[in-house]
């Protein structure tokens, strides 16, 4: 069994009072709770803190934990002789067991496995994972291999975390922040209880060309000044191949040109739109010939884009 220093995790002295422990937990929970925090690794951090608090807040568990002595975090250790008789009537096997699962079996909480003796069905636990997919995967649907650690129960009823690979089919229709429920892909139910569900929080990887708003996509479309003035037709990339987009004469910078139904598919029906936002691009270096043409144009043109600056 690997040692974890619950006091160190919470930044507490071994002599901390119950009140100190509660106060520190609340502070850390506000800082790291995954539903509230924007810190990097908030979720992992919160899990560690919650695990430590679960043991330290309970006087019986804390006493049992203190009796384990102080070791280096991650160090393999065995509890002192007689430890299990002092704190429980049950048989223990300490090999390959996580410290948190050992303490979860303490006190009122009976272990979930066979040794609990109960025959009534216990539903499996639900799990939530964050999943990043590409825009193309959101558009076409995809199948992902998710690596998860799910608990399995030994004959003593103790949980052992076993790595699993879960195949998850992500139907098309995803967008940023959407949730997918995979029925029965969470923890195994016991005594005929239903299996837990797996919830995926979907987020989209940034795309070099397309930006996402709901199911709509936005694309910058650079045009030359003469294309914008004269009008033309250009090839525009979409997630389902190029389309030809007609640029009307007199198109201005910032104008949005809509390509219907070329956004992300919606889960219900239909699809969002693709919006091409026009940008007027100018060459930063020009040849002598080009310069002459621009100079001729400057001389000829009556166009004044700043007329509205004039005093009223």
């Amino acid at each position: 069994m690997k040692y974890k220093d619950y006091y160190k995790v919470m930044g507490l002295e071994r002599t901390a009072t119950a009140e100190d422990i509660k106060k520190t937990y609340r502070k850390l929970a506000r800082k790291y709770h995954p539903d509230v925090s924007k810190e990097a690794n908030a979720e992992e951090k919160f899990k560690e803190v919650a695990e430590a608090y679960e043991v330290l807040k309970d006087p019986e568990k804390r006493a049992a934990y203190d009796q384990l002595g102080s070791h280096q975090p991650g160090q393999d250790f065995r509890p002192p002789p007689g430890w299990e008789q002092q704190f429980s009537e049950r048989d223990f096997s300490f090999d390959g067991i996580d410290l948190s699962d050992l303490f979860a079996a303490f006190g009122g909480a009976r272990p979930r496995g066979a040794a609990s003796g109960g025959r009534h069905p216990i539903p499996g636990e639900d799990y939530e994972v964050n999943v990043k997919i590409t825009l193309q995967q959101a558009c076409d649907g995809s199948e992902l291999d998710l690596r998860l650690e799910l608990p399995e129960y030994d004959t003593h009823g103790f949980a052992h975390r076993v790595p699993h690979t879960v195949k998850a089919r992500i139907p098309k229709g995803a967008t940023e922040g959407q949730r997918l429920r995979l029925s029965g892909k969470g923890g195994k139910g016991l005594n005929g209880g239903r299996n837990g569900n797996l919830y995926l929080n979907i987020s989209l990887e940034p795309h070099p060309l397309f930006r996402v708003s709901g199911h709509d996509l936005y694309l910058d479309l650079p045009l030359t000044p003469w294309e914008a003035v004269l009008g033309t037709a250009v090839q525009v990339p979409t997630l389902k191949g190029d389309v030809r987009l007609k640029i009307p004469s007199g198109t201005t910078g910032g104008q949005r040109l809509r390509v219907a139904h070329r956004g992300l598919p919606k889960p219900h029906e239909g699809a969002g739109d693709l919006f091409a936002i026009v940008q007027i691009a100018v060459p930063t270096t020009v040849s002598d010939d080009e310069r002459k043409l621009f100079e001729a144009l400057a001389e000829k043109s009556q166009f004044d884009p700043r007329r509205h600056f004039e005093r009223r």
Binding site: K167, R169, P171, Q178, R181, L182, S183
Partner: peptide
């Protein structure tokens, strides 16, 4: 592990 399409369910406001 077989994967039936019915296993995946979007939790969105259409349903």
């Amino acid at each position: 592990m077989s994967e039936a399409p019915a296993d995946s369910l979007w939790l969105h406001h259409y349903r």
